[in-house]
Amino acid sequence: MALKASSLSDIYMRFKPHLLMVISQIGYTFLYFITEASFNHGMNPHVYITYRHIVAGIVMFPFAYFLERKTIPKLTILLFAEIFILSLLGVGLTLNMYFASLRYTSPTFVASVINTAASLTFVTAILLRLETLDLRNSRGIAKLLGTMISLAGVMIMTIYKGPIMRNLWHSHHIHIEGNTAIHEHWLKGSILTIASCVTWSLWYIMQAFTLKRYPAQLSLTTWMCFLGAAQSAFFTVIIQHKPAAWRIGFNIDFWSTIYGGVVASGLIIFLQLWCTEERGPVFVTMFNPLSTVLVAALAYFVFGEQLYTGSILGAAIVIFGLYLLLWGKEGDKEAHIKTEGNSYSSTYDENNPKLQKTTSTEREIPQGEP
């Protein structure tokens, strides 16, 4: 029984990062629908970003204070400036440019471009030596192919439609009022979308460096939320001059803000920081296309939206590519554990004068043992 419990514990610890990232993408899936309903209700996206991160900061602060106050590193001016830039990349710039781009393009276009952030992060991580890519072995090839295949699947999902799938579910569906506004200034929107994709990738990459100097995920999440809220508020005040835009009632706007703050900007950012420290930024970003798959499935089964064969084909390709990449990443984990083990063994032998050399037929025995 004890052996079985130990085995289950080992399996859980091995796949804990995978489980946490899947949970994160499920959280993002529900965020998509609740924010869409809120924006269609009249909520200003930039005001929403500000309020959402204020809520997240307030919720995360007690956990950061009580759980990390004894281990938190000293916050220097340079480190604060680094966290400020990290907040700007993750909140102040990325989210505001992302939502602004939706005004000028289409959700399909934005989704297809944003999902390329995983590939961009992969390339950047290799250039900065945060990620290894050895094409001489099968796992290295799997990481490269997995990234390219997942990107291809996302592009198919968002660009190619194909025949409409017949809806076999006859239950009552939930309907969300759509935004029928005509998108203009496509070039401006495209630039904003690409820029948000770049800053988002840089945000994931920078997290890996900041966590080395500030290894306190709860506190870092809290700082990013408060600083991001302040940055977003400054930006919103410049472009939004109507005080009425800042007022929200006890309706879908309120609940979307609470959900976005507690789940998306609080819990999920913390989980992503933990996984980034454990497995690196590429591991985290490669799960992002899962939310696209989950949104399409939920929209079909719950909201009664049309589902095209292109979406099913793309989803299958994304999952296959993700599997390849994760299989390749497991090789990195095994190599890292092996390297640490060899390093420990070497250090132990060098620092222990009691170990004596033996013949090939004898084991090394510390002096004094019987």
Score class of each variant (00 low, 15 high):
292 T>H: 02
230 A>R: 03
316 A>G: 10
40 N>D: 08
365 I>F: 11
343 S>H: 13
5 A>D: 14
145 L>C: 08
33 F>Y: 14
34 I>Y: 05
33 F>I: 08
261 G>E: 00
210 T>I: 15
72 I>N: 09
134 D>H: 13
312 I>K: 04
141 I>T: 08
189 G>Y: 00
90 G>H: 03
320 F>E: 02
143 K>R: 13
181 A>W: 00
144 L>V: 11
247 R>Y: 12
34 I>L: 10
251 N>A: 06
34 I>E: 06
193 T>Y: 00
310 G>C: 07
145 L>T: 07
23 I>N: 06
170 H>P: 03
216 A>L: 07
15 F>S: 05
224 M>W: 04
126 I>F: 12
343 S>Q: 14
180 T>K: 07
178 G>C: 03
208 A>T: 14
327 W>P: 00
69 R>T: 13
154 V>D: 01
71 T>M: 02
226 F>K: 04
252 I>Y: 05
202 L>D: 02
274 W>L: 15
266 G>N: 05
343 S>W: 12
99 F>E: 01
65 Y>T: 10
269 I>T: 11
286 M>F: 15
107 P>A: 00
20 L>Y: 12
148 M>Q: 05
227 L>D: 00
283 F>I: 05
241 H>C: 06
46 H>A: 06
74 K>I: 15
42 G>M: 05
14 R>K: 15
27 G>K: 07
216 A>G: 06
328 G>P: 00
310 G>W: 04
8 L>C: 12
61 F>T: 09
308 Y>T: 10
233 A>D: 05
54 I>T: 01
99 F>P: 00
313 L>V: 15
335 A>D: 14
84 F>D: 01
355 L>M: 09
366 P>M: 07
63 F>M: 09
1 M>W: 08
46 H>T: 08
205 I>W: 07
10 D>W: 11
258 I>W: 04
99 F>I: 02
42 G>Q: 04
302 V>E: 12
90 G>L: 03
194 I>K: 06
126 I>R: 09
194 I>V: 15
335 A>K: 12
315 A>C: 03
223 W>T: 07
93 L>I: 13
24 S>N: 12
10 D>E: 15
76 T>L: 08
27 G>H: 04
33 F>D: 04
80 F>S: 12
333 K>S: 10
291 S>R: 03
197 C>F: 06
353 P>H: 10
327 W>T: 07
254 F>N: 03
